[in-house]
Design a protein around this nucleic acid. Structure first.
Length: 870
RNA sequence: GGGCGUUUAGCUCAGUUGGUAGAGCGCUUCCCUUACAAGGAAGAUGUCGGGAGUUCGAGCCUCUCAACGCCCACCA
């Protein structure tokens, strides 16, 4: 890197200019490459693979930043750190995108045929793979691209086949006809968790089904009258006296005249609707169950397109109609036949397809399922026994509740894009073989369905490490992974499946910690989405504010509880301003250094109290930062570093260095700060470090050691004395502001009290509070026309002959006394309470007493001075 | 119907074993003091959602009420 520009640093931090070449520098020097032969302890993270056709959004930016912080931190702490990147083939999502594209040309996937469509989608995926990972690179992501994987690549496909076949052979995968959530638009089954329920203003239609061979009728209630053609019974509760006599009788379906029995089943709720329920096993999961219990057949009346089937059971006038048109038409006909008893408004939850928001049609269909209950056992156990820890822990409960009520997972999808199910059917006999390879391609045809995307994502932590080759170097070195970082929205979809599959196939948890962060929302707390137009584009933010600024802002907003983050553009000013501050402080230091790297060694025998104070503060910060990262309090880390760098280093130490500077300390603290900040703000810190004249044993800051607490840099006593300096300075500045004394006017002060200490610290006070002369005076010095402040046990007297308003100064001091008095009252209140003295910890009682003495002293000092003033 | 979360300064939010409250932005006053106006100095603002309880002491623990949000659940 070019060091010649040190003295030409711009006065404002131009993020784009500064950040642009750094990533390439790291890549060129293989800084992100993880070595599976290393002796170092491993630390590994697998990325939650973004959808291959997706675009980087703020959620990725947050998730990626956190993973990068953890990776960079552990790398600097001496671990062999691997952050493994990759993409998800995202079955439905990607297929939808490509089909939409085709639709623009007026084509459907069927026009192309499966083979051609898959080929096109592969091209599409390959084009986009580099785009999304490239966008992650613009975040500064220190992942190892040489290990980038794709859920549909050869290795993953091998893993998927093996897992499928194994589970099948163990009896944990089965095929059968069940009610599934069918998306008529995607033309596929989807799983229960891909179905999202939305409240809609529906209607409840009450329809009279006449009894056969006698007068009377039974009135049922339904929200979907079009399904009545598929009714095979009417069910009532066996304890419902209203219908007692009807059980076992037969009623007649209006419009079509088909006869169906009236049965009794506990499932029916007497109090809902009319208490009589029509049973349509082919189009309702509960009815399906009732049907099974009573050995009823199923009549499918709606097809996979969401249209009414042309069959004997469906009224000819609605055959071929869309399900909603059929609903209207059916209602119309029922009205005409005078069997529509009542229509009431009925808001209810309707299932929607997660991907396209189309209303789900529950449909009887032949699908593949994973039997989850046996698999869930270990997954529950390993979380309960702490082998897998959620941070924050409350998500554990959420996970366990879901796992303990797990239902079988429908894994087949009627799509073309994905892992084709490794089941083969004999062309003549139809005999089915489940195997990793087609036993005889001439005579066997592969199942046309593909697997749910989450099936392969569920194997992600080990399929990317070489599994099923358990002897591969990566698998041995980096599996199981250490931390998984993700949002709570995919705990069920992804985290739960990875744990389940990981335990089943590798016998160990795929990671030990699941770090769950909040979701990014807009400034009104709404989910960001392109359709709402409320998204904030990370790429634009990076352009405008800089990558490190964005990372810093996002990090600072990550609270320990993992609250959702409300974002607006302006919030990134926080990070930008901080980046600018770091830049300028560094600029100052670099401009003022006269010594060369060799001479910038810390000499602990040659330190002023200011040096000791900053080193002591830094040391404390180092400890806090390490502790907080280890405990996933990453937002806290940002706050601590911001506070230290700005309010300690810049506001005081750098200012003090203008009077008297210790270049070694100035440089040391800056370098350490850069290291501490590096995981959060990698570009800026790397750039500055490259320009610093410090001895470098590594090519990059990112490869150096992370700061650790040093016993020899603790200087608590000197640090406290320095705090007194700051207090004195603040008091004098305060006084200046209160009396409108211009900064240009130098003050003379008199000091009464601890002479030794104040002689030591006077030079600092003189400079930073713009004091000309300091005179030490004895007790009871004349203080007419003086303003004053008190610091510790010492009075600072400022003679302001003719300048001050005595009355105003008295008021000012009285205000201080009021504050002190309030505190004193509270302290005394506690101390006079016997119970407090007896039951509170000794230290607390002791420090309370001590504080009383201090406060009393201060009040007395001020009182004395007031009495002299008046 | 269950479960979870939130309610603290005008706004957005911190606040880890309970010891009378903090940040950023905004606001007021002053300052372009040669690192930084994306800056510096000083300042104002809070019965910590309501109520009750435990405790010497509660923003923090318990109970309860209220508002908002999220997740799960088969009410046709």
């Amino acid at each position: 890197m070019d060091n010649s520009q040190t003295l030409e640093m711009a006065t404002t931090y131009e993020a784009r200019e500064i950040e642009k070449d750094i990533y390439k520098f790291w890549e060129d020097n293989q800084c992100f490459k993880a070595d599976n032969k290393s002796k170092k302890e491993p630390y590994s993270i697998v990325i939650p693979p973004p959808n291959v056709t997706g675009v980087l959004h703020m959620g990725h930016a947050l998730d990626g930043t956190l993973q990068d912080i953890l990776t960079r931190y552990h790398r600097m702490c001496g671990y062999e750190a691997l952050w493994l990147p990759g993409c998800d083939h995202a079955g439905i999502a990607t297929q939808n995108v490509v089909e939409k594209h085709l639709a623009k040309e007026g084509k459907t996937r069927h026009d192309l045929g499966r083979e051609e469509f898959v080929k096109i989608t592969w091209e599409w995926a390959n084009d986009h793979k580099s785009r999304i990972l490239g966008q992650f690179k613009s975040l500064g992501a220190s992942f190892d691209l040489s290990r980038a994987r794709f859920t549909l690549d050869e290795g993953c496909s091998r893993a998927v086949k093996k897992v499928f076949v194994d589970l099948y052979n163990k009896g944990l995968i089965y095929k059968g006809a069940y009610i599934v959530n069918w998306c008529p638009r995607c033309q596929s089954a989807i799983s229960d968790i891909e179905t999202q329920y939305e409240n809609e203003d529906g209607k409840l239609w009450e329809i009279s089904y006449p009894l056969k061979d006698e007068m009377g009728a039974i009135v049922i209630a339904t929200t979907r009258p079009e399904t009545m053609y598929g009714d095979v019974a009417v069910a009532v509760n066996p304890n419902d006296y209203k219908y007692k006599d009807l059980i076992g009788k037969t009623c007649v379906l209006p419009l079509t005249g088909r006869e169906i029995p009236i049965i009794a089943d506990e499932y029916v709720d007497k109090s809902f609707g009319t208490g009589a329920l029509k049973i349509t096993p082919a189009h309702d999961p509960n009815d399906f169950e009732v049907g099974r219990r009573h050995n009823l057949k199923s009549i499918k009346v709606i097809d996979e397109m969401g249209k009414m089937i042309s069959c004997a059971e469906v009224h000819p006038d609605v055959q071929g109609l869309d399900r909603y048109e059929a609903r209207e038409k059916t209602v119309e006909m029922l009205k005409a036949h005078q069997v529509l008893v009542r229509i009431t408004e009925h808001p209810h939850a309707v299932g929607k397809c997660q991907r396209c928001n189309t209303t789900i049609e529950p449909l009887l269909s032949e699908q593949w399922f994973v039997k989850m209950e046996p698999l869930a056992k270990a997954a529950i156990e390993k979380v309960k026994d702490g082998s897998i820890k959620f941070v924050p822990s409350r998500w554990e409960k959420n996970y366990l509740m879901w796992m303990e009520n797990i239902r079988d997972w429908c894994i087949s999808r009627q799509l073309w894009w994905g892992h084709q199910i490794p089941a083969y059917y004999h062309n003549q006999t139809g005999e089915m073989v489940v195997a990793e390879e087609n036993p005889d391609p001439k005579n066997y045809t592969q199942d046309t369905d593909v697997l749910d995307t989450w099936f392969s994502s569920g194997l992600w932590p080990f399929e990317t490490m070489g599994w099923p080759d358990v002897n591969s170097d990566d698998f041995k070195k980096f599996y199981p992974t250490t931390t998984l970082v993700t949002g709570f929205d995919i705990i069920f979809f992804w985290v739960a499946r990875m744990i389940t599959m990981g335990l089943e196939f590798t016998k160990v948890p795929p990671f030990s910690t699941v770090y769950i962060h909040g979701l990014i929302r807009d400034e009104n707390g709404q989910k960001m989405s392109k359709s709402k137009g409320n998204t904030i584009d990370p790429v634009e933010i990076i352009e405008k504010y800089g990558c490190d600024a964005m990372r810093f802002t996002l990090t600072s907003l990550c609270t320990y509880g993992g609250q959702d983050i409300k974002l607006s553009n302006e919030r990134f000013e926080y990070g930008r301003n901080f980046a600018n501050k770091i830049w300028n402080a560094s600029r100052f230091v670099l401009m003022n250094l006269t010594k060369s790297a060799k001479d910038l060694k810390l000499d602990l025998n040659n330190l002023s109290i200011a040096d000791k104070w900053i080193l002591n503060s830094l040391n404390k910060v180092v400890k806090e930062v390490n502790d907080n990262i280890k405990n996933y309090r990453i937002g806290e880390v940002a706050t601590i570093l911001y506070d230290f760098f700005w309010n300690y280093y810049c506001d005081w130490y750098v200012e003090l260095s203008k009077i008297e500077k210790n270049e070694a300390v100035l440089t040391y603290v800056l370098e350490q700060s850069l290291k501490l900040l590096h995981p959060i703000m990698p570009h800026l810190t790397e750039k500055i470090w490259q320009m610093m004249p410090v001895e470098k044993t590594e090519i990059a800051l990112m490869k150096t050691d992370f700061p650790q607490f040093r016993e020899d840099l603790s200087f608590e006593n000197d640090a406290q004395n320095m705090e007194i300096v700051f207090e004195a300075i603040k008091s004098l500045r305060n006084l200046r502001a209160d009396f409108n004394i211009p900064v240009g006017v130098k003050m003379d002060i008199k000091i009464e009290g601890n002479k030794e200490l104040f002689e030591k610290i006077t030079p600092y006070i003189k400079r930073l509070a713009r004091v000309e002369n300091v005179e030490f005076v004895s007790e009871n010095a004349n203080s007419k026309h003086c303003a004053f402040c008190t610091v510790a046990d010492t009075k600072i007297i400022v003679p302001l002959e003719g300048l001050i308003d005595i009355q105003k100064e008295i008021e000012r001091q009285n205000k201080k006394i009021q504050k002190l008095q309030a505190e004193l009252n509270s302290l005394n209140g506690r101390l006079s309470n016997e119970k407090f003295v007896n039951s509170a910890p000794k230290e607390v009682v002791e420090s309370t007493k001590q504080r009383v003495v201090e406060v009393e002293g201060e009040i007395k000092t001020i009182d004395d001075l007031i009495s002299k003033l008046s």
